[in-house]
Amino acid sequence: MIALLVAGPVLIILVSLFIGRYPLSVSEVFTTLGFRMGLVQADIPATHLNVVWDVRLPRAILGAMVGASLAVSGASFQGMFRNPLVSANILGVTSGAGFGAALAIIMFDGQTFFIYLFAFAFGLLAVILSYLIGTTYKATPTVMLVLGGVVVSSIFSALISLLKYIADPFDQLPSIVFWLMGSLASARFTDIVIAAIPMLIGVIGLLLMRWRLNVLSLGDIEARALGLNVLIAKSLAIFFATLATAGAVCVSGVIGWVGLVIPHIGRMLVGNNNEALIPVTISLGAGYLVIVDNIARTLTGSEIPLGILTSLIGGPFFIYLIRRTKARGW
């Protein structure tokens, strides 16, 4: 089982090394890989190395990490808020993080540390606000939380628009716009190392406390009576999920819907016990985003920003989920 969960995304990453605009034969890709890893002695054109090692590989790895982060944070938010209709995106975390990052681009001239810090801080603020709004009417908590997220999300989207309005139309605006749409195009290994820190901490943290998410999903009173320090457990889960989301948003912009679609596919496959669901979600999320990105970068000469494709897939899926929720008590 574990082997399958690891092998799946790894295989998809490998396959994506063969896909792209630059025409490379299968043997050329293998030779290039072998050469780069010191297994083969060959005369490799520098552009082949670029394409395989510097363009396709880092992009696929980063895509996998981003997909895993968004998916697992979605599953965790669903569990801890006992609400199948939420994800980092719907709770406003991605818009919040996007706003934080855009703010840092303008305020600190795009210094990496501040981008991450602001993305995380505003992501956290967004989820707290959504949660507070969601607890206003106790009668319909599921819907209220979603509505709270919609409100918070739209506030932060508006703030992002405000920033775009303020930003330099020549220099900063295109970078903010392109970045918000979500693209992994200029990923390099040094970016991966930096971006991996928050994403890995978030993903591994959630992976380790996945069983606690089951207990949290029973609600505050029962979870506490079962011996859980609810405040600490919930804070930790929100911390990890927001950290993973913010890390993903910082490298690839706002990519919608992954956090909603993937956990539900996971639920269909292995059920709702987070012990199994969380690892499966991580694996599926990683594979899914790499595949979508492969589609995005091969459909056209340039790239359709990822966010567009994931939304096109995710929106209709959300409608399906709502229908299913209504029909079967979800």
Binding site: R82, G205, L208, M209, N214, S217, L218, L226, G227, N272
Partner: peptide, 27 residues
Amino acid sequence: HEKPFPYKAIDIVLMGRTAHTATFSPP
């Protein structure tokens, strides 16, 4: 008891062991 997710019966019973497990480890 509000049933948030369709857990298996054994999953629910196992949650009785919460106090006996550490934050970052499963039962």
